[in-house]
Structures are given as structure tokens and as C-alpha cells.
Nucleic acid binder design. Structure first.
Ligand code: NAD
Ligand code: NAD
Lengths: 208, 208
DNA sequence: CGCAAATTGTGATAAAAATCACATAATAAC
DNA sequence: GTTATTATGTGATTTTTATCACAATTTGCG
């Protein structure tokens, strides 16, 4: 009872709550979160109830408390350490992105096969693939981003798997399969483009 | 009867069929596509049936014909012209990406407010925001990618909307709302990270 | 040419997800 | 305090999505 869509909604509730907090709100109602995220109020309450998140009847949800609980479910109560494999166009964009900093997501290092990419400066560490297994072990990294070209994705996937990585966000346009050892989230941007194109071409509005 | 998930699956079937074609297969069965994409064979057939895509009993689907029909549904039978607003880390990665070229997706130009980004060379045209409405009209562009910082997203969204853009793929971490005039597909990468983190932390395997 | 094997296409059925609706509790107003 | 009002929390219900299962058809083979 906790599929991908439901977790996705929890992230959205969290983002909406953060925005309201930044506007100095102290409490929030299922209704507000529903408006902000485009779902019904009972959907919000049902989602919360499944994760044991409770509010006060008539009083709604204390934003701080709600955020604490949502962050706990989403793993944002502790630092999530990532490495990234493939420092090309996309890998570099991600490794340079400052938006993750404030959100308990940290990319510790990048890895590549191209020596021209290597860099030992602490703030943008880019290392050869050979050092990946050791780095993962020493730093107890469980999560990885994969941004190598399609032809290299399967090989890189296996290296990550062997190194003990537990979860991979894969941007290469090839479906890598999850199993007991590694969970893969395939994120194919071309597919996202196609999705938008379909709904524009058919003049239908998808229910997000 | 054609939600986002179903269109997403059609994209995956298309990708699987392309791969099989590149291996010189001439026909394919619902079973093969199911394996390749991680769904059941009857799901494949049901999806096809909803879009009027037919095969031969006992003979499966001719790959070429199947691709023609899937490409038609997904709008890959004609060039899809995009512009991109915000040429920073992510915008530059997307505009430089060569993978879209072979797939009927073309980014005609980028737009930014920072004069340092402007570039009039034909192959990587980056123009000031002021030229956006004219460019969109002249080139009959309906689709846009939005990669500006969060604080600028709402404003840029409205400029795109006023210029007559019909569909936007939004990477800024803020939920822009679709309406009759513009369809928005919000793609929040942090949310995708959180999703992976959740399933890794809970040791559950999401059904893709 | 007729029979056996294999695969589609789809109505029927099951499972999953979302919504409804209302009893229950908290708050505010007086 | 008592009462009216407003939200929550959740079982019941509806809607949506996926699977089953099998008749209809095609293919290949003897
Ligand atoms: N750039 C984009 O906007 C974009 C859009 C959609 C999808 N993608 C996908 O994301 C992936 C990366 O795209 P990109 O544009 O950054 O590619 P890129 O070619 O710019 O970068 C790929 C990097 O991976 C490195 N690499 C190659 N083989 C490797 C290996 N075996 N081990 C480790 N590193 C290796 C290369 O040295 C290079 O630095 C590709 O699969 C691409 O299809 C990118
Ligand atoms: N870089 C990433 O890996 C990454 C990851 C997740 C999300 N994002 C999101 O994608 C967006 C872009 O990220 P980025 O790292 O490329 O940012 P960036 O700061 O590198 O680039 C933003 C660009 O937008 C331009 N810009 C600012 N205001 C503008 C306006 N009003 N009109 C037109 N252009 C304007 C800037 O000049 C700059 O070139 C952000 O919203 C970010 O949160 C990026």
C-alpha cells in the first residue's frame, strides 16, 4: 500500500507545506494541500492516514510537525549520499546544481572513464572508474546517478551493482532492471517529451 | 481512456520495438514487448487495442508497421519544434544533447535574459527574451522547455503562454498549472530523487 | 487439405486507486 | 459552560486500471 504515485504525492505535499511555511503559515488544512497539488482533500487525508500522519480535527496540521513527518518518510531527515557516473553534459549539470544542497541530497563525487574529466579538488571531485568500488565502500554510499551514453549504461550499471550500490537513478535511454540487490528508477527524458507532445497534439489535458 | 501512464507505456513499446528492429527482427509478439517493458502481455494487447493497433493472430506484429502506428500516436511522424527558456546548467545540457536529433525532436533556439548567453550562430541560437514572441510566431513553435530558476518560472511561464506556446516541459521545482491554453508537464528532479530514496530506504521494489 | 499449435483481441472479472460521506473530535463564539 | 461550526479519519462505495480466460483466427505441418 505505497506505490510510486503515492510517494510522489507525499513529495508534493512536502513542497507545498514548505512554501506555506516560508510565507509564515503555522498550520495547513488538507484542503490547502489539495489545491496546491491538484488532488482532492480526501486524497491528501487518505495518503496521510496510510503513513500514520495525523492532524487535529478542526485544527488541521501543524506545518512544522507535518514537515518532520513527511521528511522522515521521504528520507530527508538525514543526508542522502550520491555518486554520479558519467560527467558529460547532463552529469555536469547535476553535479553543479546548487538546489540539492538545501535538501539533504549530496553528490559526493563523479566518476568517468575520460581522464580529461578527472579533478581532485575537494568541491568537485571527479575520479576514474577504477576508484569507484573503494570510494563507495569507504564513504558508505548507497545511491547513484547514471548519466553515461546508452551503449555504456549496462556495463556501468553492473559496476555500480558490484560496488554495492542499492539505488540508481538512470538517465540513459535504456531500461535497466531492478532486482533484490539494486532498485533502478529509469528516467527517460525523451519519453517525457513524447508524453507532452501527445497531450498537446490531441488537445487533451492529462490529469497530472 | 488514454492517461499519462498508458502513453508512457506506448513510448516504451516503441523503444523496445526499435531495439528489436536494430537486431533485424521483423516481427514481435505481445509477449516480447511485455518482457522488454516489464508489463503483462495482455496489458500490451489492451493498450494496442485502445489505439486501434492490430496484429495478426498467430503472427504477432510486423515491427515496421507497429513502429509506424506507435510513432503516429506519439507524434514522431513529424518534426516537433521546441524552444528552451533559461540557458544555464540544465538548459545547456539539453540544447547540446544530440540524442533528440534522430527522434524528430528539435530545439530551434534558446532564450535567456543574460546577454552573456546570447549567440547568433545558427547551430546554437540563443536569443534575448524580447525576441521570443516573434520567434514563436514566425517559426510556428508550439512546445517549450522551461529551465529557469524557481523564482523566474512563473513569469517565464506567462511569457510563453502569451506567445502562444501550447505545451511546456517545466524543470523548475514549482508546480505550474495547465489550463485550456497551455499544457504543462512538471518534471521535478528532486521529487524523482526522493522517490528512489524512499524505495531504497524501505527495501521495497516499486512496480516501475 | 485438414488438423494441431500458437497468438491475438476483447468481454468478463478482479484488483487497485480514488472519492464519498459521515461519525468523531477539536475549536471558537457567546 | 454550552452550542455551533469546522476539519479530520476512515469504512463504504465508486471509478479506474489491470488481468484473466477463451473464442476467433492464422500459420505450419503432415
Ligand atoms: N544531455 C541531455 O540533455 C540528455 C537528455 C536526455 C537523455 N540524456 C541521456 O543521459 C546520458 C548522458 O547524456 P550526456 O549528454 O551527458 O552525454 P555525454 O556524452 O555528454 O556524457 C557522457 C559521459 O559519460 C562518460 N562515459 C562514457 N562511457 C563511460 C563508462 N563506461 N563509464 C563511465 N563514464 C563513461 C563520457 O566520458 C562522458 O563524460 C545519455 O545516456 C543520454 O542519452 C541526456
Ligand atoms: N541543474 C540541474 O541539474 C537541475 C536539477 C534539478 C532541477 N533543476 C531546475 O532547473 C532549473 C534550471 O537549473 P540550472 O541549474 O540550469 O539553473 P542556472 O541558474 O544554471 O540557469 C538558469 C538560467 O536561466 C536564466 N534566467 C533567469 N531568469 C530568467 C528569465 N526571467 N527569463 C529567461 N531566462 C532567465 C539565467 O540567466 C540562467 O542562464 C532550475 O529551476 C532548477 O531548480 C536543475
Amino acid at each position: 500500500m505505497s506505490n510510486r504515485t503515492r510517494i510522489l504525492r507525499l513529495s508534493r505535499y512536502k513542497n507545498a507545506a514548505l512554501r506555506l511555511k516560508s510565507l509564515n503559515f503555522l498550520k495547513v488544512f488538507s484542503d490547502n494541500l489539495a489545491d496546491a497539488t491538484g488532488v482532492t482533500a480526501s486524497q491528501v487525508r487518505k495518503d496521510f492516514s496510510i503513513f500514520g500522519i495525523e492532524g487535529n480535527r478542526r485544527g488541521g496540521y501543524q506545518i512544522d510537525e507535518l514537515l518532520t513527518q513527511l521528511n522522515k518518510v521521504l528520507g530527508k531527515d538525514k543526508l542522502q549520499k550520491f555518486i554520479i557516473v558519467g560527467i558529460g553534459n547532463l552529469g555536469r549539470a547535476l553535479i553543479n546544481y546548487q538546489g540539492f544542497v538545501k535538501s539533504e541530497i549530496k553528490i559526493l563525487a563523479g566518476f568517468d572513464i575520460d581522464p580529461a574529466k578527472f579533478n581532485r579538488k575537494a568541491d568537485a571531485l571527479i575520479l576514474p572508474m577504477e576508484e569507484l568500488p573503494g570510494f563507495v565502500k569507504t564513504n558508505e554510499v548507497e545511491l547513484a546517478i547514471l548519466t553515461v551514453p546508452e551503449f555504456a549504461a549496462q556495463e556501468a550499471f553492473e559496476k555500480l551493482r558490484n560496488a554495492g550500490i542499492k539505488g540508481i537513478l538512470n538517465f540513459a535511454p535504456i531500461r535497466l532492471k531492478s532486482d533484490d540487490k539494486v532498485i533502478v528508477h529509469n528516467l527517460n527524458l525523451e519519453t517525457e517529451f513524447e508524453n507532452l507532445i501527445y497531450f498537446v497534439n490531441t488537445h487533451t489535458v492529462p490529469q497530472d
